[in-house]
Nucleic acid binder design. Structure first.
Lengths: 155, 155
DNA sequence: GTCATATACTTCGAATTTTGAACTATTCAA
DNA sequence: TTGAATAGTTCAAAATTCGAAGTATATGAC
């Protein structure tokens, strides 16, 4: 069972190649982000980027694979920094909508545009390849948002 | 400056689309991994996957965007679990090589093959699209490993 | 209407993880 | 041989994450 490691290495399946690439890119982007956004914690930066529009905290918790109390803490940080405000969701007054302030939007814009630049440099892809990659990435994202990986994780 | 948000949203650049997809996939894979590998911490799981061949701890620290003391702790965990051993690097006796035991290789194989399956389900791509994506992902990974994002992060 | 139950978020203390500074051992260069 | 640099370790402090109990609102049964 362990002696097929060498064959695995010699000819990795496309899926594994894809994952390796995704991990490498993710980590490289995270590293670069750490250099850019000086005042935000990791989680705060992620949340800022997720807030392309007002979102409920529960939605963010699901999205960011974490627990409500963590979202509370992260939102507290961003609110204290003046980057977002909480507004009651008119459709369900138990819930809050997190809304970026103008300052928050500006910072988010900055991060997003820096990120585009980083992608370009980190990936080394030309415009055509970037377009191809983006098309597939969108497809993947749609699929993930649509389906939360069905059943079958067996644990 | 903040009023171009709507245009950004309406027609995101390919780079940002790519990054969004990569983040979504990364997080989904992480979530799924958490369900699979019962005994390993997050960091331990990452290290196991990185150890496709014996590696120095310093290399791993660079690779995993962390600090030597974190690598020490993570390696301690995997060593205690019988998944790897430390061997002095014959080329520099200050350094350790982390080498997977047979048990470690088996577990790594298992994780890697589960990951392939997860990619398939999470991405929703067909074989042809997966091959395209993998080709680009490899290219990206090669570029990242080759160049550590040159200069220009300005901070 | 009102009572019971479910949901959205908060609080806060405990558990986990990560960090950084001081330390040991080895290498490298002069 | 000596001094400076590098690889990894230790350990206590800092940061992060979690989870259980709590508050407020919603929803459904009667």
């Amino acid at each position: 069972m362990s002696d097929d490691i060498s064959t695995r290495l010699g000819r990795l399946s496309p899926e594994i190649q894809a994952i390796m690439g995704v991990y490498a890119l993710y980590w490289k982007l995270e590293e670069a982000f750490d250099c850019v956004e000086t005042d935000l914690s990791h989680a705060e930066c992620h949340m800022l980027i997720k807030l392309d529009q007002p979102k409920r905290m529960g939605v963010l918790a699901t999205d960011m694979l974490t627990v409500p109390s963590t979202i509370t803490a992260t939102a507290d940080g961003l609110e204290k920094a003046g980057l977002l405000t909480r507004e009651r969701d008119p459709e369900d007054r138990r819930a809050w909508l997190l809304v970026l302030t103008e300052q928050g939007q500006d910072l988010r814009n900055m991060l997003v545009s820096v990120a585009g630049d980083l992608f370009h440099r980190a990936s080394g892809l030309d415009a055509d390849e970037t377009a191809q990659f983006a098309r597939l990435a969108c497809k993947i994202r749609d699929n993930i948002l649509k389906t939360g990986i069905p059943e079958g994780l067996t644990k």
